[in-house]
Design a protein around this nucleic acid. Structure first.
Length: 445
RNA sequence: GUGGCUGUAGCUCAGCUCGGUUAGAGCACCAGGUUGUGGUCCUGGGGGUCGCGGGUUCAAAUCCCGUCAGCCACCCCA
């Protein structure tokens, strides 16, 4: 194959007009709702130092970082040394999420408000294997609040994403909620080691899919047989309706996190997230930096999640001496779009010119440009057909791009000071004085 | 990372089981029917080294091996 591939790289996409409009539609609502909660925007660079990125996402996360190769002399030096490691060949990488850059920014700018509420809508990159709703370049829409451990902050970030989903037209979705400390207490009580938490929870998460026996089998395979079985029993009990209240009333390590979740539910109940928050004792999120409540948005028919978040009181402290508590929530734009597309949730989104200005070959181009300018000044979206093929060609083009009107300019119109305006949808045509044309079209758009 | 499915025209696909002249269809595109009128209709046309590489064979889109890419499920995530 001598031709150059015209496809974008794996997991990355081009967006044509219709795609862009749908994305903008969603992003506009996200921005408006986030700002209504008092969040202010932040944009950070595409590229971060690897020292910023590494060690924040867990070992799997580090593997998924896109790293940027040294250039020129620096690369030559690293290669000349022989057996160069990844770290010696690169010291920068592409942003993996929006939370770690936020943590860096909070640590870097002392002048930020003590309670910093920021939103960020930017692409992130992960060297993942692409799949349905999974890409190597995708947009996250984050809200975060730093500087407070208050449950109000937890409830507000949940409320913000819930309000976005409502504004987009979602009614049925749940925000699965758990608490990192509660999980830790369950794992300890079952006699498992802290490092066994992750594999045990991955197996337990499949309870609904593969059933109790399937989970037990998988736990045994991982060498977590007895402790895993105890954990399964405990979590099954925790899924009962009043389990959270029981845990909150208990003594010992379950009490504090269970109380925290109860307080969160009671607080969030007064906001948009209210009825959507659901306690899920088996929810465990992969990112390493969560310390308190953790969230994941679940919607029927979507395998993955539409968003996730949680409290991470230790992350910012990795960048500066004093720890700063923080909580955040992230919506995955592509996941939202995927579900909205499947369900036909988009309104009609217009694009392209409302009027195509066509002209005969004997009409000078400057005249067409002048008339187009007049129509645009009146607020219409206008395209001037560049060439002057036969009128059928020009109208066929107008039809192909979906322009509802064509304005035709020939010697007859020039002499009379009119435009022949054709309504492509109705198939009707009228001769309209040029000065009235814009209003005539606007009335019918 | 694991398992499965699919790669044929710009797009959606047929043909492959059982190898046999110039590889087809619909849509899209171009031209004409209509030199100031689109969307419908009619006629004609351009466009394919059958993903890539190798093997078997007199002969490969078709059979075999490899490879790459895409999709689906799992894993993980947003």
């Amino acid at each position: 194959m001598s031709e150059i591939s015209t496809k974008p790289p794996s997991g990355m996409r081009d967006f044509l007009a219709a795609d862009v409009l749908r994305r903008r539609h969603v992003l506009g609502i996200v921005q408006r709702v986030y700002e209504s909660f008092g969040f202010v925007p932040l944009e950070t660079p595409t590229i971060e130092n690897l020292s910023t990125l590494l060690g924040k996402y867990g070992p799997e996360g580090d593997q998924l970082l896109y790293r940027i190769l040294h250039r020129r002399e620096k690369l030559q030096r690293a290669l000349a040394a022989g057996n160069a490691t990844e770290l010696e060949l690169s010291d920068e990488g592409l942003r993996y999420d929006l939370t770690v850059p936020l943590a860096r920014v909070v640590a870097n700018y002392r002048e930020l408000p003590a309670f910093y509420k920021r939103y960020a809508i930017q692409p992130v990159w992960r060297a993942d294997r692409p799949g349905k709703g999974r890409f190597r370049e995708f947009y996250q829409c984050d809200v975060d609040i730093t500087g407070t451990t208050s449950v109000v902050a937890d409830a507000e970030v949940c409320g913000a994403v819930a309000a976005v989903l409502h504004a987009l037209g979602f009614t049925e979705f749940s925000i699965q909620t758990n608490h990192r400390e509660l999980l830790r207490a369950f794992v300890a009580a079952a006699g498992l080691l802290p490092e066994q938490e992750s594999p045990a929870l991955i197996a337990l998460d499949k309870l609904d899919k593969i059933g109790r026996d399937g989970v037990l089998q998988e736990l045994a395979q991982k060498g977590l047989g007895d402790g895993g079985a105890r954990l399964l029993t405990a979590l099954e009990q925790a899924r009962q309706p009043d389990a959270l209240a029981t845990l909150a009333a208990s003594d010992g390590p379950f009490r504090a996190p269970a109380l925290a979740l109860q307080t969160l539910f009671a607080t969030a109940a007064e906001g948009p997230a209210g009825k959507h928050l659901v306690f899920d004792p088996t929810l465990a999120r992969g990112l390493g930096y969560y310390t308190g409540p953790i969230f994941e948005i679940a919607v029927a028919g979507l395998a993955g999640s539409m968003g996730g978040g949680g409290r991470y009181d230790g992350l910012i402290g990795m960048f500066k001496k004093q720890a700063v508590p923080a909580v955040g929530f992230s919506l995955g734009l592509e996941r939202v779009l995927l579900v909205m597309e499947e369900r036909g949730m988009f309104p009609a989104l217009g694009v392209g010119p409302q009027v195509l200005l066509c002209r005969m070959a004997d009409v000078p181009a400057p005249v067409a440009v002048r008339i187009a300018s007049q129509l645009r000044a009146a607020g219409l979206r206008v395209e001037v057909f560049a060439d002057t093929p036969q009128m059928g060609k020009q109208l066929a083009y107008a039809n192909a791009i979906g322009a509802p009107f064509a304005a035709i300019l020939g010697q007859a119109e020039l002499a009379a000071g009119t435009l022949a305006i054709k309504d492509l949808r109705a198939g009707e045509q009228a001769s309209v004085p040029a000065v009235d044309a814009a209003a005539w079209i606007a009335r019918r758009c």
